[in-house]
Amino acid sequence: MKAIVQEVYGPADVLELRDIDRPAPGAGEVLIRVHAAGAGPDVWHLMTGLPYPARLVFGLCRPKNPVPGWDGAGVIEAVGADVNDLEPGDAVYGECRGSFAQYALAKADKLAPKPDRLTFDQAAAITCSGVTALQALHTKAGLRPGQKVLVIGASGGVGSFAVQLATAHGAEATAVCGPDAADFVRSLGAVDVIDYTREEITDRPCRYDVVLDVAGNRSVSLMRSVLTPEGTLVHVGGEGGSRWFADAGMQLEMGLRSLFRRQKLRGMLAVARRADLLTLNGLIDKGDLTPAVARTYPLSEAADAIRHLEHGHPQGKIVVTVATGGA
């Protein structure tokens, strides 16, 4: 089968299209014939091996799994032992292992049926970004109808889901993004837009019940200053910080400040669960949520997809499309 392979950590140049053996599903796993794969910061971290402590999980000197990609959508080709609720021919999406390939393995409990109204490209954009936004707003922030939400980094993968989820829950979403994305985030449901090239979030007298920080380039003190006295700040990412500790300093500061204030300052690491995917499916089926695909690239141009992710400020999610067929 065709797959993107990396033997070493590094920039996008380390990604190569090769012929490799098709994997076989073990107990509790399924083999998916991949139609599309999501490309997000998770792929970049695996590709570069940064921050360095992540290599304790990914592989110290080189990736344990040389095929990148975590988000995938496709059709089940085969099922392993102890898989009783999925069968070959089912169209699914979810967390896969090595989705930048014609075939990929996935744990059955991290998959959900592909909504009929979505293409495979759209479904591939859901898992990491959609689950992160859902868990940030609902699990961490306890979002309630009528609350005001500030989404910093609203035009990217997580942010585009967060704006829609806040709106679907009856909250008012204000989006922070660049000028080119203003119309895009309004189309997702944002009631107001802050153009970060012209003003800072503190320039307005507004206070927010929830601040969702996806960008990771503002201080905790600055973001706290726009929270209500009992508001919640959730930090879910951003590529700031050092090559050793990423944003560990911010996470530590948030934890310490939370000890002495009514405001809740929370970091998070999303975990894909079928229950959350099914929650997202329900919103998709009702028309309250639609994955935003910024651009698609064929598998052979996966390196260009990652370069776009790094430098192109995509509006929505970058998706790698995989031609069906192959050994």
Rank of each mutant, 00 (worst) to 15 (best):
D288W: 10
R218H: 14
V193H: 01
K64L: 12
A246P: 00
L278C: 08
V236M: 00
G312A: 14
G240Y: 11
L289A: 05
L283M: 14
Q263C: 07
T132Q: 01
T324W: 01
T324M: 00
R257T: 08
I4R: 03
P115N: 09
D82P: 05
R273E: 14
A272T: 15
E77W: 10
R18A: 11
L289M: 08
K140D: 08
M254W: 04
P314C: 11
S160R: 06
G249Q: 12
I4L: 04
E87W: 07
A275R: 11
L150I: 14
A78K: 13
A37Q: 06
R274K: 09
G316A: 11
R117E: 08
T127C: 08
L278P: 04
A37R: 06
A39M: 07
H311W: 08
A123M: 06
L252H: 11
I194T: 04
A133Q: 02
K317M: 09
A104D: 13
K110W: 02
A162S: 09
L212F: 06
S221I: 15
F161R: 06
V193P: 07
Q135I: 00
R18D: 05
Y52Q: 10
D13Q: 13
Y9N: 13
L269K: 06
Y297V: 03
K107T: 02
D109N: 13
I76F: 04
L15Y: 12
G312E: 12
G241S: 04
C177P: 12
E77L: 07
V14C: 04
I306S: 04
G216W: 09
N84T: 14
R218Y: 06
V176S: 06
A166H: 10
G282Y: 02
I318W: 02
R307Y: 02
H313Q: 14
G40F: 07
G170M: 13
T296C: 13
T324S: 13
L259D: 03
A36D: 04
V271E: 01
K2L: 13
E7A: 15
A91M: 05
Q122S: 09
T232K: 03
V191S: 14
V191G: 04
L289H: 05
P68R: 00
V158H: 05
N281I: 03
C206H: 15
A173I: 04
G72N: 06
S99Q: 06
G89R: 03
K110H: 10
W70I: 02
A175K: 07
A81Y: 08
T119P: 06
P23C: 13
P88S: 05
Q102V: 08
D209G: 14
E200Y: 09
T202L: 05
L265A: 08
L56C: 11
A136Y: 01
D85S: 15
V43L: 10
D21V: 14
N65I: 12
M1Y: 09
Y52N: 02
G178N: 03
I318E: 01
E239S: 12
A24N: 11
S160Q: 05
K286F: 04
D90F: 10
T174P: 01
R117N: 15
A81Q: 13
D276A: 05
A24C: 08
L31D: 00
M47A: 04
S225G: 11
Q122Y: 06
G69N: 03
A141M: 09
G312N: 12
T48K: 13
C177Y: 07
R274C: 00
T139R: 07
F58Q: 10
P66I: 00
G89D: 09
L222A: 15
D13P: 03
